[in-house]
């Protein structure tokens, strides 16, 4: 995995904590919807924040394959690397 992956994960967790509150434990394998109770609309809004954080376009279609924090981080990483 490229070197900026840990940074992506860390920034992503920061955004997730804004939704879940600071006390919730977030691990790479944590399920966004079932464990963090992030509903579909919150997830869509989170994507806009992520787009701005990393200056990328994340089509919401791609979320169909995303369940866990790690999968979302992978998606961001993939889009970010394709851009460079």
């Amino acid at each position: 995995m490229a070197s900026d992956y840990p940074e992506i994960l860390q920034k992503l967790c920061h955004h997730l904590k804004q939704l879940t509150g600071p006390d919730v434990e977030i691990l790479p394998q944590t399920d966004l919807i079932n464990q963090l109770a992030i509903d579909s609309v919150k997830l869509l809004n989170l994507i806009m924040e992520i787009e701005d954080e990393f200056d990328i376009s994340v089509p919401i279609n791609a979320l169909a394959d995303v369940q866990t924090v790690q999968e979302l981080a992978n998606l961001i990483h993939q889009i970010k690397s394709a851009k460079q």
């Binding site: 994507i47 806009m48 376009s57 994340v58 089509p59």
Partner: peptide, 12 residues
């Protein structure tokens, strides 16, 4: 948009 298969991006 979903039916179209295009990439969907939302603006605020």
């Amino acid at each position: 948009c979903r039916l179209s298969g295009a990439e969907i991006i939302r603006f605020r």
